[in-house]
Nucleic acid binder design. Structure first.
Lengths: 200, 200, 200, 200
DNA sequence: TATGAATGAGGATTCATTCAT
DNA sequence: AATGAATGAATCCTCATTCAT
């Protein structure tokens, strides 16, 4: 019954990915146990390892899936669009991701904090190339007087840090804000920041 | 000869703190082992535990020491100074800390990422109170027209995220920047960001 | 096939209980190691902990099982029976237990010697109540002239000490008696003791 | 200053013996730690080992001192005295020892429970010889009609178990008796037991 | 005589992974 | 596809003992 088997397979693999994300994003790779993941996935530990050959494989799969989507918002920044709006749009997409996918953000943060042992290549390769390409665009925008002078690479770092902060430091943000939802007010604030920084 | 005894004690305790900072800041509490800390401290594992009763005690001591200094730069923001310069000064102090004490920053980031199990109280207590106090000052500055309108709490979040990013995401930053030293250019960039955001 | 699984489980749990009894009754809780128990059970140490969550759990399970049976012989003393025979019967049942379950007796003795940290409640609760109930019966027997006057609680202590001695001090008893089986002659002796003490 | 040194030595050795008795009698040899003994003695652990070469040495010294006094009450049973009074006297001396030296009794009980690894020789040698000698005396008393027939060795066992019980099972005895002092009533009871057993 | 410092040999427990079914 | 059983390799921690002073 390959069809039904495949369906179960997909369901369980998805459950494992979700569980792994939940666990790994909080405790990091070494701080997480397969028991935690198995519990969260509602599977037995040996059954977990029927779908993924090892703890590492689950973690790596999560990282791979993450990277697929992680760069997408930056890719979408359109060379031909209105510069200020394009940059603001990127920042807003990143903020939305922090709101909707905070665990992915924390998984990424964890990996970077530990020295990015598994994704250094991606950072120095694909990511660096993408950033440099977009930096070139931004420089052109500056030269054309469409936005105020700004270090384009640090601008991108700023977008990352300002938006991801609301996912990665969520506990701290909420401890300080109390019941207020952080994202409601964050969006306005970040738009202020970038508009004043960039609008000529 | 208690003095010599104390000297050894101080030396070893300091070595353990340094080693613990190195290890815990990278791997987090659960991801670190006493073996790693002992190796880094140049001590045997039992000897380590002669100075600190447990792995947890080392980690907790590190967190405690960290928190002592962590809030200091914000405390230093002077109500009576020039608003823009005071806020910029705070941001610059934080950036300097990221440059000089990146491991402390990563230790803190690790703790927060894991849900801040040991310092939630400090966050919701001391830190929140301090932030609210400084937010009041900032609001007054805004009311007096000394700085442009801005959400004061999110302004503080922005200072944190923009500066700590250079410590916490150091690997990523360097992967993208290559040989350029991040902090040389970061300072100018951050001054641009905050000046444009705040200067009336 | 849950039945086969259960069979292995039961077999191993039983083996662990037997092994734990053997080891704990001789060395006490703190003096015993999981290695000893695992060896005696023919299991690896981690496999041991697959069936019981901790060393303490094994010990506690043994104590619990012991207490279930420990009071039974006293319960069986029948208010309506012949007083002398009832008391003698109780003593004989206790002596038989010392012969057939000496390790249980020593486990109990060990626990009491260490201050009964885990079963103080049972002693001061269930056991005390049972002793007091039976003491009331014995007092009635005395009042009715069925047995000679005797302190009923100390009588019960005497039955315990005289019989358990042959299990708890077995090594000493055998060192003195040489090849003679202690229990052969003990029974007669104890019957003499109690008959002369009680027969009006 | 040898004299003062000796004084300190004696004081500390005595303190260690007292502390060791306290600790070993409760937890047994393997269940006790040198830290516990050192704490109880008010000495540092290395200083402890200045006076006794090892943990074992302390325990062995305690056992040796114990054995010196342990057999004394039986030795005192006088062949030429009145049989019933002599045997009762012995029982009373043993009961007094249980009251005044319960820790010694428990130390002995612990050692026996563990199979008497260090004093098997004494049991099978000195003790056995003494018991046999006294058994011969008792047999003579029986033959002379001075006391009722009774198994002499088991009689001695009975004296041991009935009296030591109040030291070794102290916790249980007090749990059942509540506030009543066990020894007040025990003496009368034991006299009843032995008088009725022996008086012709 | 005394103690701070250090350590090797355990000892309880965890955990990723394998095996058998 | 699933799971109960089993294990070797850690991992935190304890403890008797030694060393240096």
């Amino acid at each position: 019954m390959p069809k039904s088997a495949t369906r179960i397979q997909q369901k369980n693999q998805a459950a494992i990915m979700t569980a792994g994300l939940e666990v790994f994003s909080q405790f990091g790779f070494r701080g997480s146990t397969l028991d935690q993941v198995a519990d969260a996935a509602g599977l037995s530990k040996p059954n977990l390892l029927y779908y993924f050959p090892s703890k590492d494989a689950i973690y790596t799969a999560l990282l791979a899936r993450l990277l697929e989507n992680w760069l997408e918002p930056l890719h979408q920044m359109n060379d031909a669009g209105d510069p200020v709006e394009e940059i603001l749009g990127y920042a807003n997409r990143k903020l939305t991701m922090s709101r909707d996918f905070p665990r992915e953000s924390r998984l990424f943060a964890n990996e970077i904090l530990q020295g990015a042992p598994r994704i250094k290549d991606v950072l120095a390769g694909e990511l660096r190339a993408l950033v440099e390409a977009k930096a070139t665009v931004i420089k052109r925008w500056i030269a054309e007087g469409k936005i105020k002078p700004v270090d384009p690479v640090h601008l991108i770092f700023s977008i990352w840090s300002l938006t991801q902060h609301y996912a990665d430091f969520d506990v701290q943000v909420r401890a300080i804000l109390g019941d207020t939802d952080p994202f409601d007010t964050a969006e306005t604030h970040l738009n202020d920041v970038f508009r004043r920084l960039l609008t000529p």
